[in-house]
Design a protein around this nucleic acid. Structure first.
Length: 361
DNA sequence: AACCCGGGGAA
DNA sequence: TTCCCAGGGTT
């Protein structure tokens, strides 16, 4: 654990830069581990601007561990609606219950205890214990990968096991253990504002003198990544079924996107299908067997919804029925005025907004 | 080690 | 379009 002179100087320069350049963010006003925890989970793979309103709403409704633990999972998901990566919300809820049961309702301060909570990995555990208690655990997030890979011209791919291990070790060497909390935040803020992914302004960088990538004019080639993501198309057909002021929803299950969120009855096809083709599917026949005559309307055109690894080609059909089919009894009957009470995927929310827009015109 | 999980902003 | 964001869990 050698803390060399050069690293100490680097850390001090980052701390100086941070002092004058850090953004005023609401969670930086708090030393409550609960507040820090919520902010860290929201900010996973999420930009500050995108998560800000969610942070305010969430911490107002659930101001502490006890209030979160005693809530219904559906309500927690509702406060997460639209933010994505919904396992974060489910894990937050489960972890809050775990803190009540195993830690007497007091947020744990031991690294290993924090790490044991659902949804908290090495990064988030290090962030919480260093920010709140100044414990010497280095954070390694996307910013740290970028800053360190450039400073030391490390070309090990960051998305590999050995890469993560190597950068974690390097982060520990660069960190000043006596100022762990401030240092960790300084590196990340530096990565977010100065050492940015595309076209960083290296001439204005206070660390350009000691940056190996800058010296060799290879800043843009860091960090190195290995895996390339591939997307697959999917074809969704939602049935917004209307009967006497009510509609039907279902709760999505495990091993697919949007676990725990609600949606209209869904038929997925392997290939693109128009309504004529959809009517010929077994799923469609089963769903409406015994529903009488169908009055189908297409209020909005197909929506292309892009996720990280999937492109959803989605059609919505509004279907008025004459009788309740047997198949519908396995769904949740809901007065359609109450749909907004349920957490739905962004895609479904978009549809409902457009539909309301059309109706009010 | 490979794969899965959302949504949005910036270039 | 492409990249990537205060990552983590499952298999």
């Amino acid at each position: 654990m050698s803390h060399l002179k050069k690293e100490l100087k680097t850390s001090n320069m980052l701390l100086d830069w941070y002092k004058t350049n850090k953004r005023a963010l609401p969670w930086r006003e708090s030393s409550d581990p609960y507040i820090i925890w919520i902010s860290e989970i929201i900010l996973q793979q999420t930009r500050v601007a995108q998560g800000m309103d969610y942070f305010y709403r969430f911490t107002e409704r659930f101001p502490d561990v006890a209030s979160l633990a005693s809530a219904e999972e559906d309500e927690v998901l509702k406060y997460w609606q639209g933010l994505g990566y919904y396992s974060r919300a489910r894990n937050l809820h489960a972890a809050a219950k775990s803190i009540m049961d195993k830690f007497g309702g007091v947020f744990p301060s031991e690294y290993k205890d924090v790490l044991s909570l659902k949804g908290i990995g090495e990064y988030t555990a290090a962030a919480i214990v260093s920010f709140v208690w100044n414990k010497p655990y280095p954070v390694v997030d996307g910013n740290v990968f970028r800053v360190l890979s450039r400073l030391y011209a490390v070309d090990t791919p960051i998305d590999t096991t050995s890469g993560k291990k190597q950068f974690t070790e390097l982060a520990g060497i660069v960190m000043n253990p006596e100022k762990a909390g401030a240092h960790n935040q300084a590196v990340m803020e530096f990565g977010a504002l100065q050492c940015v992914p595309q076209n960083p302004d290296c001439e204005a960088c206070p660390l350009k003198e000691c940056c190996m990538a800058y010296a060799s004019h290879t800043v843009q080639s860091f960090p190195v990544k290995q895996n390339k993501t591939k997307t697959r198309p999917r074809y969704f057909h939602y049935l917004y079924i209307i009967y006497k002021g009510q509609t039907w929803l279902s709760r999505r299950g495990k091993k697919d996107i949007w676990e725990g969120l609600y949606e209209f009855p869904l038929i997925e096809t392997e290939q693109p299908a128009d309504f004529a083709a959809l009517q010929e599917t077994d799923a469609f026949r089963h769903l409406f067997d015994g529903a009488g005559k169908l009055n189908v309307s297409v209020d909005i055109p197909e929506i292309k919804h892009v996720l990280s690894h999937q492109v959803l080609h989605t059609a919505f059909y509004r279907v008025e029925i004459e009788k309740i089919s047997d198949a519908l009894n396995s769904y949740l009957a809901v007065p359609y005025k109450d749909i907004e009470r349920y957490a739905v995927p962004r895609l479904v929310h978009i549809y409902l907004e457009k539909l309301n827009g059309n109706l009010s015109e």
